[in-house]
């Protein structure tokens, strides 16, 4: 089970990656939306991650644009997209959901909050095994 962590901050990729590793994920990383599309494009179908965590403000291609692009690709239809961002206004959450994000986690967040989101998405380890 793989997850792609998309964030321009290496510190944040490490932190999110650590939390997801604890939840049993193998981690891929990308520093912006375009790099993320490239990583996904290089995956064989069976290698595709099930989850992307997506920062919003990034150079080259921002997270919202990435979500819109990913949702247009039929080969990525099973990919769960979760924004993990410091953008915290109500209208920003609405925009991300309208673009096709499945969940939204506002920075800062706790390890428990990440686990709760995975649970909501049916991606926590206990449910995955079943």
């Amino acid at each position: 089970m793989r997850a792609l962590v998309i964030d321009d901050s290496r510190a944040m990729r490490m932190m999110i990656g650590r939390l997801l590793t604890q939840q049993g994920f193998e981690i891929l990383q990308a520093g912006d939306g375009q790099e993320a599309l490239d990583v996904l494009g290089a995956c064989e179908p069976h290698e595709l991650p099930v989850l992307c965590t997506v920062d919003w403000n990034m150079p080259v291609m921002d997270g919202l644009t990435f979500v819109q692009s990913a949702r247009k690709r039929t080969e990525l239809r099973d990919l769960t997209l979760m924004m993990v961002t410091t953008e915290s206004e109500n209208h920003q959450v609405v925009r991300a959901l309208a673009a096709g994000a499945h969940e939204y986690l506002i920075k800062p967040f706790t390890a428990e909050a990440m686990a709760d989101k995975l649970d909501l998405l049916g991606l926590d380890p206990s449910r995955r095994v079943a």
Binding site: N90, E103, T110, L120
Partner: peptide, 20 residues
């Protein structure tokens, strides 16, 4: 608080039933 909201609130329900 933001951290309390982070504990398991589904985003679609957050924006529907809460205001900043």
């Amino acid at each position: 608080s933001q951290l309390e909201i982070g504990r398991g609130m589904p985003a679609p329900l957050l924006v529907k039933y809460f205001q900043r």
